[in-house]
Design a protein around this nucleic acid. Structure first.
Length: 859
RNA sequence: GCCCGAGUGGUGGAAUGGUAGACACGGGGGACUUAAAAUCCCCUGCCCUCACCGGCGUGUGGGUUCGAGUCCCACCUCGGGCACCA
């Protein structure tokens, strides 16, 4: 930083009244001009400069909505900024960027309503958001800003998508590999030598057969292996609106689900979609959670979401239909207690057995009635279980040869396990309820060893997951185009890298097309080229943005190898807990894939994670326009200053706690800053401010109560406390200890030198006022982080509570190194204690040095 | 229903099993001022009391311990996640 600019900025004497508007504006400009927070990549570093340890501190980037920021939004950003600033001062090479997740529904809705392109609108919102963030004084390196809707960014989102398309999961090597490698394996030996994570019904074939397949046949087979693949999925379809709806666009109507807008019926419909085979990574996504420094509840949520369960697949023969059914169970030990077999109504082969099912008409009617039910309705836990027996069929228990009836029932899910369950009413609550309703046998049999019985009946030990593959397509305009072409013969070709980005075309209308496809399907040139009409979902761009910050202008790669090898991963990630099963899972999946491909250096993207709590309205409700309780940070900054806002949001309570906003509360933070300011003024007058004793005038009558030594002690205690508290995100107690320290300074006086150190501690929280009062030759924010000297932390006297039978009755102040005996003697000598011990005999004395002494006496 | 987490003054909250209520807001009283604001000083968990002394007190009930807001068991309330996952 040019010192001349700095020096000239310093020369003014501080105004007697703290003018936050002037001071904050001045330094924000100064920082920008001087590039105070600019972060350099090591490769760009000039000459022999020492390589500092890296520290990547990241916020979850916002979606820039029209409503703008309210006072709750910056809370997480302030926390991460305090952390980043402290690390930067401490000598780390800190990467602290910000950007915008700018594809999404609200901008699309705006486009539909105004019939204008969402691009310029989004750009405007981004600029607005940025402005709101800037006045708060974050230490972002804005030169690294990214927005997911810009073609130079989404080029690489598309590129990663194509990589995923071009990959399969090798279950043996436990990593992703390219499709080329899979094809080579197929050419060599067919499916024989391939252990892959693929669709259930993937066919087996020899090398010879593979060669005989047509291009389309090959494509269909490979599609069952690709990590990004095309398939069919049930979606919420609204005929009247002619569109697909998200779950939260649907409400309950009197006769079933209806659209929130218009109240039209919504049904389930299978539609062509792109998917991400995230299930291939299920196991690693669970396993690799363990060492992460993440909040336990987020880890727990992800674990439950993935829902790993280890069990057995056991086959029951059904001789009448010349078939068999495999069930999945985690309780193979209860196999002897099976009294029936039950299949999901959607079980694929039921209709093939209709000749041997004597009550087929009723069965068919039942299946139909279930198909019309909404999934929510079907799976409501309190719903009575329904089912029907497949008369004429019996299944044979492989453990003992017993014949049991075969049922279908709506409490069995088609898309979990094998879609078939063995009924053990004795040991399973749901089976018990079902058996009771339909008067099925309930038998009590001894339990056996799970593994042994599985082996004995020729079953297999398997692991199942609740998590499903993620749909990776939206029938919307405002998202990344999927960079593929569909030829009229059905062949799909990915675009070449040099053809990227595939930019969004102009459209006439942003309305849904009416046939459930995206507005892109109405663009003639688009269709002529055979481009995919679906766009990517909102989470595509956000699944890798943190990598782009490492090297944001690279036009040869999503990030350069040098940058990736240096920055590696995010050291501290801060954001809302609501992303636990979305963004945080998808990012981990993409990152693991990129790791498998040798494109990133670590197997996890976010080493540490912290969640900030929400700030609600002062009325205890959620902050929203609807309740009229929204506080705009711009107003707060204008009135009290950014430093006050920052300090207050950190002081309010624990970082992760949900807290109500308090308009009165921020006054305390403002007052604190003003007191710091006034103390600085006093230090202008006298090199070392000596307390006049005004604070103690009433209680103590001393000429000079100034005690700079006491202040020095307080300061070093504060250095220790603040350092530790910022590391652990205990910002509220860090601020509180700074307040305590200032109280000491005012009471005892303080030296100029100690006051400057105090400013350093305060700098991460209140960057503007501390910079203004700082006397150094560089910015305070690059001035190093203070170290405490343990010698100032040593107390020679300590106050110890004296308890009798566990109740505090007195206290004594005694030398810190007093022996237990000394403490005992001193405590017993106290008149108050003597009184309490009257007529009792001392049984035992417990001395906790420096804390408490407990005298245990008889009653 | 299952899995997490939390319940502390008027309010936000603090407290390695060791003196509960730090820090701050609000409230009360005082100083300064012609006055107000700002600032500074004192008090502020509840009950009894002029005061001292004392009693009670961290959602409820038990337990462990010399000692429990903190650990264990049961329950209540609130928040979050999942929703018949076999």
């Amino acid at each position: 930083m040019p010192t001349s600019a700095k020096a000239s900025a310093r020369q003014r004497t501080p105004a007697t009244i703290y003018n936050h508007l002037k001071v904050e504006k001045k330094w924000q400009k100064e920082w920008e001009v001087n590039g105070t927070y600019k972060t350099e990549n090591p490769s760009l570093r000039s000459g022999s400069k020492r390589l500092q340890p890296k520290m990547y501190v990241l916020d979850m980037f916002p979606y820039p909505s029209g409503a703008g920021l309210h006072v709750g939004h910056p809370r997480g950003y302030i926390g991460s900024d305090v952390y980043a600033r402290m690390k930067r001062m401490d000598g780390f090479n800190v990467l602290h960027p910000m950007g915008f997740d700018s594809f999404g529904l609200p901008a699309e809705q705006y486009a539909i309503q105004t019939k204008k392109h969402p691009g310029p609108f989004t750009d405007k919102l981004v600029a607005q958001y940025k402005k709101q963030l800037e006045v708060i004084g974050f230490s972002y390196d804005w030169s690294r800003e990214v927005s997911t809707h810009r073609p130079e960014y989404y080029k690489w989102t598309q590129w990663i998508f194509l990589k995923l398309c071009d990959a399969w999961y090798d279950s043996k090597k436990n990593k992703a590999r390219t499709i080329d490698e899979l094809v080579t394996l197929f050419e060599k030996s067919g499916t024989k030598s391939v252990a892959a994570f693929a669709d259930n019904a993937t066919p087996t074939f020899s090398a010879k057969e593979w060669q005989s397949f047509s291009a389309i046949e090959k494509q269909n087979i490979l599609m069952q292996y690709r990590l990004a693949y095309e398939g069919f999925a049930e979606v919420n379809w609204c005929e009247e609106l002619g569109t697909v709806l998200a779950n939260d666009e649907i409400v309950d109507g009197p006769t079933g689900p209806v659209s929130e807008r218009g109240g039209f019926p919504v049904i389930k419909k299978a539609m062509r979609q792109w998917f991400m085979r995230i299930t291939a990574y299920a196991d690693r996504l669970v396993e690799d959670l363990q060492p992460l420094d993440w909040p336990n509840n987020i880890k727990e949520i992800q674990k439950n979401w993935i829902g790993k369960s280890v069990g057995s697949e056991i086959t029951f023969e059904i001789p009448a239909a010349q078939t068999s059914v495999s069930v999945f169970t985690t309780r193979a030990d209860t196999l002897f207690g099976v009294t029936y077999i039950v299949l999901a109504p959607e079980y694929p082969f039921i209709s093939e057995w209709q000749n041997v099912i004597s009550n087929w008409t009723e069965v068919e009617a039942y299946i139909k009635s279930i198909a019309q039910k909404e999934e929510n309705e079907r799976t409501a836990a309190d719903k009575p279980k329904t089912g029907i027996q497949l008369k004429g069929l019996t299944a044979i228990n492989p453990a003992n040869g017993e014949e049991v009836p075969v049922w279908i029932a709506d409490y069995v899910l088609a898309n979990y396990g094998t879609g078939a369950v063995m009924g053990v009413p004795q040991h399973d609550e749901r089976d018990f309820a079902f058996a009771t309703t339909y008067k099925l046998a309930i038998i009590d049999r001894p339990l056996v060893d799970k593994n042994e019985i599985t082996k004995k009946v020729a079953g297999t030990l398997v692991t199942k997951y609740k998590m499903r593959d993620a749909i990776f397509a939206r029938q919307r305009y405002w998202g990344e185009p999927i960079p593929l072409r569909h030829a009229t013969n059905g062949l799909i070709t990915p675009l070449k890298e040099k053809q990227l980005p595939l930019e969004l075309p102009k459209v006439k209308s942003y309305e849904p097309s009416g046939n459930g496809e995206s507005p892109l399907s109405q663009v003639k040139e688009w269709i002529k080229e055979g481009y995919e009409t679906n766009t990517m979902p909102g989470w595509a761009g956000s699944s890798w943005y943190f990598l782009r910050y490492m090297d944001p202008t690279n036009n040869k790669a999503f990030a350069g190898k040098k940058a990736l090898d240096y920055w590696k991963d995010v050291d501290m990630y801060v954001g809302g807990a609501e992303h636990a099963t979305g963004h945080l899972l998808y990012s981990r999946f993409w990152h693991k894939f990129l790791f498998d491909m040798g494109l990133v250096a670590t197997k996890e993207p976010f080493k540490a994670l912290r969640n900030q709590g929400l700030i609600g309205g002062s009325d205890g409700r959620k902050m929203s326009k609807r309740w009229g309780n929204v506080i705009n940070p711009d107003d707060v900054v204008k009135l009290y200053g950014a430093d006050s806002l920052r300090l207050f949001e950190m002081f309010l309570g624990p970082f992760e706690a949900h807290l109500p906003w308090s308009t009165e509360g921020i006054i305390g933070s403002r007052r604190f800053i003003e007191r710091v300011w006034r103390l600085a003024l006093k230090l202008k007058d006298q090199e070392n401010f000596r307390a006049s004793g005004e604070r103690l005038a009433r209680t103590k009558d001393r000429e000079n109560i100034s005690d700079l030594g006491a202040s020095q002690k307080a300061l070093h205690k504060t250095i220790k406390k603040v350092t530790k508290d910022i590391q652990t995100f205990s910002f509220n107690t860090a601020v509180s200890s700074l307040m305590i320290c200032l109280n000491e300074f005012e009471k005892n006086g303080v030296s100029e030198k100690d006051f400057q150190i105090f400013l350093q501690l305060l700098a991460p929280f209140a960057p503007h006022v501390t910079e203004e009062l700082w006397n150094g030759s560089t910015s305070i924010h690059l001035a190093g982080w203070p170290k405490f000297n343990p010698k100032y932390l040593v107390e020679d006297q300590v106050t110890v509570g004296v308890q009798v039978n566990g109740k505090v009755r007195a206290e004594i102040t005694i030398a810190i190194d007093a022996s237990k005996e000394d403490i005992e003697t001193a405590a017993l000598a106290l008149p108050r204690i003597q009184e309490f011990l009257q007529g009792k005999s001392v049984k035992k004395i417990i001395v906790v040095p420096g804390r408490v002494i407990n005298i245990v006496a008889t009653e």
